[in-house]
């Protein structure tokens, strides 16, 4: 059974723009999916449907076979969404507060909240910074903090929206390693990006969204050659294969 499924998902903005159009997608437990598309293709809008931040005009989203509208809080617990620019979305004044925000929303006892925060910070290696102000962290660490924030809620699926934007080379490597570790730990990963050259080697599946439609879905080796016609830079240079598409050595 798919862990996440969208059925005929359509979203039309109030001004009539069709943001996503009839998207049918099935994600299975443990998958590592790269979702690519040009700017404005609708991939961010699609991601915001996964945990009910946006409501579909038509169609529905199912998690573990259940429509998310049945229990929205449960959906938000299961699907952790890491935003494009975490800097603008921190709600806590210290790293600990920031990570505790999610578990506190679940109304868990304080001792359990503390334990979850500690585990999440250990996984991303931020425990040394637990009392720092989030804004003073480096770009890569900020991204890791945003990941820890959703990790503390112990989600099954982690959706990362353009996690590499604005990061320098060490930052990208840091975050990429983190994502791979999460995948190894058993989380289902959906990685939204248009920079295939940084990550595609690790993905088991490549999905391409173009003008609100799902246009390609399959093995990266098969799909990647058709990427360029949808406004995504062809990542393969002469003599390269998909397995070379990573920024990890």
């Amino acid at each position: 059974m798919p862990i996440l499924e969208t059925q005929n998902l359509t979203h039309v903005f109030p001004d009539g723009t069709v943001a996503i159009d009839n998207i049918n997608l099935k994600i299975y437990p443990g998958e590592f999916v790269v979702m690519a598309g040009a700017n404005g293709s609708g991939k961010t809008v699609l991601a915001r449907h996964f945990n009910g931040l946006l409501k579909p005009t038509k169609g529905q989203v199912l998690i573990d076979g259940q429509p998310i509208t049945k229990n929205i809080l449960e959906a938000r617990k299961k699907v952790g969404l890491v935003f494009q620019d975490p800097d603008r979305q921190f709600v806590g004044q210290t790293v600990t507060e920031e990570v505790a925000f999610g578990p506190e929303n679940l109304n868990l006892p304080p001792a359990q909240v503390e334990a979850m925060v500690k585990t999440a910070l250990e996984v991303v290696g931020l425990n040394r910074f637990s009392q720092q102000n989030p804004y003073v962290l480096s770009g890569g660490l900020k991204r890791k903090l945003a990941i820890a924030g959703v990790l503390a809620m112990q989600p099954k699926i982690i959706v990362l929206d353009e996690p590499f934007t604005g990061l320098d080379y060490p930052g990208v490597v840091q975050v990429l390693q983190q994502i791979l570790r999460l995948h190894e730990m058993g989380h289902t990963i959906i990685l939204i990006t248009h920079e295939l050259e940084k990550t595609l080697a690790h993905a088991g599946r490549l999905v391409i969204i173009n003008q609100g439609k799902l246009v390609e879905d399959g093995q990266p080796e098969a799909v990647v050659y058709r990427a360029e016609q949808y406004g995504i830079r062809m990542p393969l240079r002469k003599g390269e294969e998909v397995k070379d598409l990573t920024w990890l050595k």
Binding site: G102, N105, M153
Partner: peptide, 13 residues
């Protein structure tokens, strides 16, 4: 949006 995404609830710890 960020608070909503992490399931903000007024019934909290």
């Amino acid at each position: 949006e960020a608070m909503e995404a992490r399931g903000y609830s007024e019934v909290r710890t």
